[in-house]
Computed example of a mutant assay.
Amino acid sequence: MARPREFNRDEALQKAMAVFWAKGFAATSTDDLLEAMKIGRQSLYNAFGDKRQLYIEALTTYQRNVTAAHLKRLNDTPSPLQGIENLLTGLVAEDERVRNLGCMGIGSVGEFGVMDEELVALRSRVSQAIGKRVTERIIEGQALGEISRRLDPNESSAFVQVTMSGLQLAARGGGGLDDLRSTARFATERLRAT
């Protein structure tokens, strides 16, 4: 008869995600995970599989949570231009410790690039979901006269997404709150109708 699980799986996953987010995949040892999750080695394997499977699940959970937050900021205002600014400025955490973590997804890009097909597919799904909605908001903004009609909506959406990546990478590199938020506002102004 199998022993019942003696820990909360969701809590353990959140703790593992925090370790991977801070250290990345390669620099995180199984012992780091066991210590953070407060579980034994066999419990980790039984509940999550190996380190890679745990990383994929943690990254998937992280991406789902941040994508929902991104879309909420983008959609929470009738003004498409303000929604884009909210999306960008909202990436920059006020808490310096959190801000310096950057983005776990961007961290995975830096660590794996395009060498891991499963991670590329995960990032692609997230990028497409955000990109589609940013494009729609740009088209809305053009119809309202907020965003320049001279801009291609798809190219502008790509610009916004590259700006998102840049802000998150700069945050990981120690960028300050005011500078990063100023950059987010500057990028948004490039879209404004004149």
Rank of each mutant, 00 (worst) to 15 (best):
R3Y: 07
P4A: 02
R5F: 00
R5Q: 02
E6C: 07
F7W: 03
F7G: 05
N8M: 00
N8E: 03
E11K: 08
E11W: 08
A12L: 00
A12G: 03
L13C: 00
L13S: 02
L13H: 08
Q14P: 04
K15Y: 01
K15D: 09
A16L: 14
V19C: 05
F20I: 03
F20P: 04
F20G: 00
F20W: 11
W21R: 10
A22Y: 12
G24K: 12
F25K: 06
A26W: 08
T28P: 07
S29C: 14
D31E: 15
D31G: 11
D31Y: 14
L34Y: 05
E35I: 09
E35C: 09
E35N: 13
A36D: 11
A36Y: 13
M37H: 06
M37K: 02
M37C: 04
K38V: 05
I39D: 00
I39G: 01
G40S: 07
R41E: 06
R41Q: 08
R41G: 14
S43C: 07
S43D: 09
L44V: 12
Y45W: 09
F48W: 15
F48R: 01
F48Y: 09
F48V: 05
G49W: 07
D50A: 09
K51Q: 04
K51T: 04
R52S: 01
R52D: 06
R52H: 12
Q53L: 03
L54M: 06
L54I: 06
Y55R: 10
Y55D: 09
Y55G: 04
I56P: 10
E57I: 05
E57W: 13
A58R: 05
L59H: 01
T60N: 11
T60R: 10
T60H: 10
T61W: 13
T61C: 11
Y62S: 03
Q63C: 05
R64E: 08
R64S: 12
N65S: 14
N65R: 12
V66N: 05
T67R: 14
A68K: 06
A68R: 15
A69N: 10
L71M: 12
K72A: 08
K72F: 11
K72N: 08
K72D: 14
R73T: 10
R73N: 09
R73Q: 09
R73M: 10
R73A: 10
N75I: 01
N75H: 11
N75W: 04
D76Y: 07
D76P: 11
T77L: 10
S79M: 02
S79P: 08
S79V: 00
S79A: 01
P80N: 04
P80K: 04
L81W: 04
Q82W: 03
E85H: 05
E85C: 07
E85W: 07
L87N: 14
L88G: 04
G90D: 15
L91V: 15
L91R: 09
L91D: 05
V92H: 00
V92G: 03
V92E: 01
V92W: 03
A93S: 13
A93N: 15
E96W: 07
